[in-house]
Design a protein around this nucleic acid. Structure first.
Length: 279
DNA sequence: AACGACCCCAACCGCAAACGC
DNA sequence: TGCGTTTGCGGTTGGGGTCGT
């Protein structure tokens, strides 16, 4: 028998989300939490399929999302993880708090891939594109690609060793949390870097997934551990929704520790519609 | 100013795994 | 255990924006 479509094609809206749809979805999830996605559109009054709602929420509306380009350190982490995991974007994203698999996948395809090719590295295998060309290309990279090659030293086993600059000043949040939770940190930057790299592959250590925090009401502690204070930097847009909906429309009680952040955002009252600037 | 080429990213599609009965 | 349903994942696409001519 044929596969059932994820949603009835008739009467289901597709394409870019409107501000109104976003409001409905955010309002619904903040009030009810994430439940059966298939039922969400009906309950939230949306003419979308559940799949579309889930995607919109996880990739765009989740308040804990970071925005903007990946930092150098994040980019390098993605490269490292990709070398180990391949195109398992969700696994990679799980180790970059506040980033989505879609975002990382897009960034990989539009930026990192090209960068690696320019550096003479095969983005699929992470091996030199070819031995001969590699020598000249790497020279080329070192002069042409700013100082990227200096910041992206590769180990013989393919694992990356960050420079001391990276490891001290621009490590992704999950790395710093590793340092804190495991008391990792030496006076030797290279040692730090290799420790971090090894910890990344310690299955016992799992970066708390932003998404998991949203499955259930979160605590302030939870959020303090996710990329610093994501709401401050990246979710100011929620304030516009909040204002537009009216205070009574939202039930923020589930956020507990996030109240402060939200309050601050509300006070900003700048009607930021960052989420729709692109539309 | 107009046009085309290119870039970027949000969103869609289809498949497979996970889940529940 | 088998089957239907739901969810998650990765590849791909379409359209808006930007840049170069």
């Amino acid at each position: 028998m044929g596969r059932q479509p994820c949603c009835d094609k008739l009467g289901v809206k597709k394409g870019p989300w409107t501000a109104e749809e976003d409001k409905k979805l955010v309002n619904f999830i903040l009030t009810n939490g994430q439940c059966c996605w298939r039922a969400v559109p009906k309950l939230a009054g949306l003419l979308r399929c559940g799949k579309s709602c889930r995607l919109r929420w996880t990739n765009y509306l989740r308040p804990d999302l970071k925005r903007g380009l990946l930092t150098e350190a994040e980019e390098q982490l993605v490269i490292d993880l990709h070398a180990r995991l391949g195109n398992r974007w969700s696994k990679i994203a799980a180790r970059l708090p506040g980033r989505t698999d879609n975002e990382i996948k897009n960034h990989w395809n539009t930026h990192i891939k090209k960068k690696l090719i320019k550096m003479g590295i095969d983005p699929v295998t992470h091996e030199p594109l070819n031995k001969e060309a590699n020598g000249t290309q790497q020279d080329h990279a070192s002069t042409q690609e700013d100082h990227e090659s200096e910041n992206h030293r590769e180990c013989t086993d393919g694992a990356h060793v960050t420079t001391s600059e990276e490891s001290t000043s621009s490590l992704p949040e999950n790395c710093s949390s590793v340092d804190e939770s495991r008391s990792v940190g030496t006076s030797n930057p290279d040692q730090d870097a290799s420790l971090i790299t090894s910890l990344l592959w310690d299955d016992d250590y799992q970066t708390p997934l932003p998404n998991s925090s949203w499955q259930t009401p979160v605590t302030g502690d939870n959020y303090s551990g996710i990329g610093g204070s994501p709401l401050h930097e990246n979710s100011a847009w929620l304030s516009f929704d909040y204002q537009d909906f009216g205070v009574e429309d939202f039930d923020f009680s589930c956020f507990n520790g996030m109240d402060m952040d939200l309050e601050m955002n509300m006070n900003m009252s700048t009607s930021l519609e960052i989420g729709h600037h692109n539309h």
